[in-house]
Design a protein around this nucleic acid. Sequence first.
DNA 1: ATAACTTGTCATAGG
DNA 2: TGCCTATGACAAGTT
Length: 742
Amino acid sequence: MLSLKKYLTEGLLQFTILLSLIGVRVDVDTYLTSQLPPLREIILGPSSAYTQTQFHNLRNTLDGYGIHPKSIDLDNYFTARRLLSQVRALDRFQVPTTEVNAWLVHRDPEGSVSGSQPNSGLALESSSGLQDVTGPDNGVRESETEQGFGEDLEDLGAVAPPVSGDLTKEDIDLIDILWRQDIDLGAGREVFDYSHRQKEQDVEKELRDGGEQDTWAGEGAEALARNLLVDGETGESFPAQFPADISSITEAVPSESEPPALQNNLLSPLLTGTESPFDLEQQWQDLMSIMEMQAMEVNTSASEILYNAPPGDPLSTNYSLAPNTPINQNVSLHQASLGGCSQDFLLFSPEVESLPVASSSTLLPLAPSNSTSLNSTFGSTNLTGLFFPPQLNGTANDTAGPELPDPLGGLLDEAMLDEISLMDLAIEEGFNPVQASQLEEEFDSDSGLSLDSSHSPSSLSSSEGSSSSSSSSSSSSSSASSSASSSFSEEGAVGYSSDSETLDLEEAEGAVGYQPEYSKFCRMSYQDPAQLSCLPYLEHVGHNHTYNMAPSALDSADLPPPSALKKGSKEKQADFLDKQMSRDEHRARAMKIPFTNDKIINLPVEEFNELLSKYQLSEAQLSLIRDIRRRGKNKMAAQNCRKRKLDTILNLERDVEDLQRDKARLLREKVEFLRSLRQMKQKVQSLYQEVFGRLRDENGRPYSPSQYALQYAGDGSVLLIPRTMADQQARRQERKPKDRRK
DNA sequence: ATAACTTGTCATAGG
DNA sequence: TGCCTATGACAAGTT
């Protein structure tokens, strides 16, 4: 009894370890109290113990490379080591450690790894996986595995079945014993049932995949939302709230800009769109570029906060309070331009230094070295309007003073709003092609044929419908007829003797699917009567009048009796042909029409009439022949019509995909342009401030930004003019585009 | 049993 | 005018 107990205890320990390795959570606290911290870690550890990698770490440790300083209990250490060596010594119960690693390494979000992967092919991955995890970034790994705790558990469980398949009778008995002892293994008996587990596995994997994607989308959207809604000035987050002067915003940006409220809806497409696997990379790039832009804005906004911190810098504060800096994106944008000043200035400082600084006149002609480029870029514009000139000295009223419209700002505002709306589109269009491609795949896979040679996703040449259809017809006709003829020749050689061949032929026919004119060419060639001559079998059909019998008899000839199988191949062929014959062919045979339906249908009118004149045919026969011809032609016409329709749809689908690709590309380009435009604006602004700040009047005092402004002249020179003049000119320029619109 | 899909056929319009 | 083709609509068969 004692020995049995010892056996059971040790067996229990072994089995527990094994279960833990397999991935079954085992509650051994009651059995292993105060024992084996490492083992306990293996079994119950938060996460890492369930990864084979951690097991290797442990094993390495136990193998003498080092003992954890905290577990200096040698007794426990040797016990654990003994147990582990016992585990390793279990030949028939070899835990495929390589598999465990492979699961960890290959844990791809698609869940494409099946639970029944063979053991053999995974050795390489295992080593790499080990290196991976034993690398310096163990902490990250651990957190990863911690996240995927349950998944790993399940994955390990998925690996287990091959092991459990190797269970010997003793092992199974042990399992039964354990079960009878009502030991809480933390797992149902199903864990030993491979098929059951695999079913669970599949379901859970699907769930998990969906969940992971949702999580990702949620996090991404959350991050985006944070970026979007962080106030650049205060750092507050104010979801779905906008500056109070929102009406002025919409007035200031009336054209194609989206209403600010759209911002709320901005994120929803992200959530839905990312679920689709289509062109994930491209979509991801789009998303990343957009997120990158937003991150930039937030960063620059943050730097702007610092920049604005000194109260003696009314320049920027005034700037940030400009009334037509619309929604928060725009605020951050403007601020960002200020924040980047210092850096940009370094690039431009030589030029600024070289600027002649006049000091004695109110009208100061300046000739910056890059004035031409600036001029060409922005035209003859009022620089004051560009930058809402600062009101220096802190005496100026922040809100007082007429603010001039910001030509670049307007462009930028509009562009930024566009960009926001385009983000929507980018995500959205990342979704539609998914459906399209999925549809395409379905077409390809379900039909089991290459319906259209140009249909394959790889060949994107969107040829014209007619040409593509014709080319596809020719290509598929050749392939179909070749395969069919091969099967026929086979049949001729071996003889038609089994149902399997019938099935083969039917499958071949089904495989041609959308082009039955090819599959059933034995009854009717497709617009090419010459094909008939290539198929002696057809001639045989056409002229073998010994098969003429009543249609009812033909129809009733279903499965031949067993004795019939032993009859000659001719009769079997006849039966097969009867099944394959169309109604019109049956009718023709019944009416003893002396030529094939193919000839009736496909011969040109002249030859057809000639053919009719050769035979003495009754009125009924002639009528039937004309009907057959009409129906046959119409049948082909209908098939062509359907095929054409399908081609049209597919071509349209392809066109839509192409357009969506183009659209996404243009969107990316636009984002790039916006980015460079913003950088240019920053540089111009820094230049403006630098130049303006260096100007001195006749008394050597700086000019007040509230009273003076720099302005471009038409000839490329820059003038210092009183602000009132600048305002008037700005208003004039503001009216011009409105007049044009009228 | 039923829905969805395929295929053949008819009627009709237009070249 | 007759022939041919295209196509919508319908029905029967098939999946």
